[in-house]
Nucleic acid binder design. Structure first.
Lengths: 251, 251
DNA sequence: CGTAGGCTTGAAAAGCGTCAATAGGAGTGG
DNA sequence: CCACTCCTATTGACGCTTTTCAAGCCTACG
């Protein structure tokens, strides 16, 4: 399972965890030697569904996925989006009963890691445990920002904020440059992420475009026309992403 | 500093961490011997403010506090509430620059623990690290539910949901019985937690009262008249709190 | 070339916010 | 103990943002 090809597979996880924590050689080696299996998942397929028992965490190797929750009225709320290199579903697997679903936005390749191997790694290499814990804390910080976004900003600011967040996170993931990127979601999904309807998302995006804050060659390709203004409209401050102070994406 | 009186101070933290994780005697002893100092904080005072450098985590020994974020328009969003026995501000202290403020709702006693002592404890006793990590994961789960609450439920459901959450959490903390408890916040603060205005919170609560879902001897004392209906209106399912299956509060 | 999913637009309704005024209660100082 | 003040709760009228419903369009893909 861990042949040369796949020995590099978890390198993206090592990089991710090294970003905010100090890991020594033994720590890195322990991560790379985690037992895992890769899996190709189709668009719209689920890694786990709310209320199911989750047994594996997974690392996104390509594509995008979202964490979602359904509410009583049948509406859906997207609570986070996951990109290449990110660990998904630690929450569900460590806490056993899933409190949310994880669904692919695009066809994606993932590496599955069993719950007990994560626990064992944490106990054997506490520095790695601390690093994963910090990742969880950063995710929690993003959740807090999303609560504020959905709770206290109007539609225009919510969308602008999300576009700014995407811009930075995609840049860090190597999926966009100069404020130019492909939106990873439909307008309906943008609505699910911002607590708006698809109709109103549409009107709001067109409004931002009309005002020159963004340009769109087609509905999904975003080019930020005026970062400063967009960030102002979206009340965006990258602090909550807890990126390194010398992060190139922040320059 | 750790005399007999204060040796029991962190017992509430031991209990909290033992709730979802397995800790042996050495683990418990290590937690109890954490260096700390206690502090009495006034109502409305801050433990830490957004963008400041946080150096200490703290354990709530009495009273209530909230984590808040300000948005551009001057509005405030409460992103979580903290009760007796809970660890606050791990996020801020481990990640260094605070992404939110923590403010007392009531006069409260807290125990302050230095960041480096938490890190050291994690590295020395990885099982304790795992336990604290799990607490962070549960908090993250609550954040996700709040995103869904604020994003996809109407005012009536939001308030009903929050009242249900309070009921369970206060019962677990020993601060309420039979769906009867004192609301730890004003209607303005309820609005900040649910993304509504104080005026609309007032109308909504009165609506719930009018329909017999709750009773109020005075504005702050809540008695849930019909738990089942209130939970239905609030689309409340306690799964996201990740309580033990045999938790008495769930019976 | 036909179909389905996503995008766009309009009109009307609903929910919630804003503004404004009043009332109640707890704490403070005289 | 009373008067005063501040904070919180309550209520009404009005307006605006966002939703809902409905229809048409575009584009990728079979």
């Amino acid at each position: 399972m861990n042949d040369t090809a796949t020995a590099l597979t978890l390198q993206s996880l090592v990089s991710k965890l090294s970003y905010r924590a100090t890991l020594d050689e033994a720590d890195r080696a322990a991560i790379l030697s985690l037992p895992f299996r890769t899996k190709m998942l189709e668009r719209n397929s689920f890694i786990v569904r709310e209320r199911e028992r989750a047994t594996h965490a997974c690392v996104m190797l390509s594509g995008y996925s979202v964490s979602t929750k359904m509410v009583g009225t049948g509406n859906r709320q997207i609570v986070s989006i996951h990109m290449k290199g990110e660990m998904v579903d630690l929450q569900n697997s460590l806490l056993e009963i899933a409190d949310h679903s994880v669904q692919m936005l695009t066809a994606s390749k993932v590496a599955l890691i069993a719950r007990q191997d994560i626990v064992k790694l944490t106990l054997d290499r506490p520095a790695v445990g601390l690093a994963m814990w910090k990742e969880t804390l950063v995710n929690a910080s993003i959740f807090r920002e999303w609560i504020a976004n959905v709770g206290r900003r109007d539609a225009r600011a919510r969308i602008a904020h999300l576009l700014c967040e995407f811009s930075l996170r995609l840049k860090v993931a190597g999926l966009g440059e100069n404020g130019e990127y492909e939106l990873p979601m439909t307008q309906e999904q943008l609505g699910d992420a911002t607590g708006l309807t698809a109709v109103h998302v549409n009107r709001t995006i067109k409004g931002l475009e009309h005002d020159g804050l963004i340009n769109r060659a087609n509905p999904r390709s975003i080019q930020i026309g005026d970062w400063r203004k967009l960030a102002e409209v979206g009340d965006f401050d990258s602090n909550y992403l807890h990126m390194a102070h010398d992060e190139p994406a922040l320059q």
